[in-house]
Design a protein around this nucleic acid. Structure first.
Length: 230
DNA sequence: GCGACAG
DNA sequence: ATCTTGTCGC
């Protein structure tokens, strides 16, 4: 069986037209903010999606859910969302306290066809989303000084349109690539991420989602404390 | 043809 | 992403 990339590409173009890059009217400040991350088991055969919900602005863990599904697609740059969104939707259904804003691991509109996983998921769930990626997929930017909160706009290939921001969330760490996903402006996307930083490279929602999705004993232990405190 | 390339 | 120990630097 071959993968019909041309069809997926067409779908991305159609979906991208529906993305809204303005701040949502439904909230001024979120009460709950979510984070997502995806991991794999059995050599990639199983996709494990994690969604965490934190209170805002306290940033304490309120809930987390995990969903596992058989992996259907390999990783193809530019088509990540098709590989990961089914498991993420399953995890979302299990979430009891639905957040008003979701930080998604990966790009938002900083994508060749302006439909990274954050945008794709935001559209499917019809909620505001922000893309928080650890690496660049698309775009160009100027070098950043090694200072906390140093930032540079991420531009389209034309160099005219800003498609996201590059943010040094922590000194001596590689920068984060922040881009609006859906129903949020580029400026707000950057500000919400900054509001979720707590001294680590990754914003808290993403950091917690990472811990849940990647079964690391150290951080998994932090989540065990959460169970006891509830 | 060559380089780039989320997770 | 995942497989993995020690190691360098603040």
């Amino acid at each position: 069986m071959s993968i019909n990339l041309a069809q997926l590409k067409q779908q991305q173009i159609e979906y991208a037209n529906r993305i809204i890059l303005r701040d949502d009217n439904h909230f001024s400040t979120p009460t709950l903010i979510g984070g997502t991350d995806v991991g794999f088991e059995e050599g990639g055969q199983i996709t494990r999606a994690a969604i965490v919900v934190l209170s805002f602005p306290n940033l304490t863990l309120v809930e987390y859910q995990i969903a596992k599904m058989p992996t259907t697609l390999p990783y193809i740059p530019g088509y990540l969302s098709f590989r990961e969104y089914p498991a993420l939707l399953a995890a979302w259904q299990k979430i009891e306290h639905k957040p008003q804003l979701l930080l998604v691991d990966g790009q938002g509109v900083a994508h060749p066809r302006k439909l990274g996983i954050a945008s794709h998921l935001g559209l499917l769930l019809d909620i505001p989303t922000i893309g928080v990626a650890k690496k660049k997929l698309y775009g160009q930017y100027q070098p950043l000084p090694d200072e906390r909160l140093a930032q540079e706009p991420l531009f389209d290939k034309t160099g005219i349109e800003q498609i996201g921001s590059v943010l040094r969330s922590k000194v001596k760490c590689n920068p984060l690539f922040i881009s609006a996903g859906h129903r949020v402006s580029q400026l707000s996307a950057l500000n919400w991420v900054k509001a979720c930083l707590k001294g680590y490279r990754l914003p808290e929602p993403t950091r917690f989602a990472d811990a849940v999705a990647s079964n690391k004993p150290l951080l998994q232990k932090l989540l065990h404390n959460f169970k006891n405190n509830n």
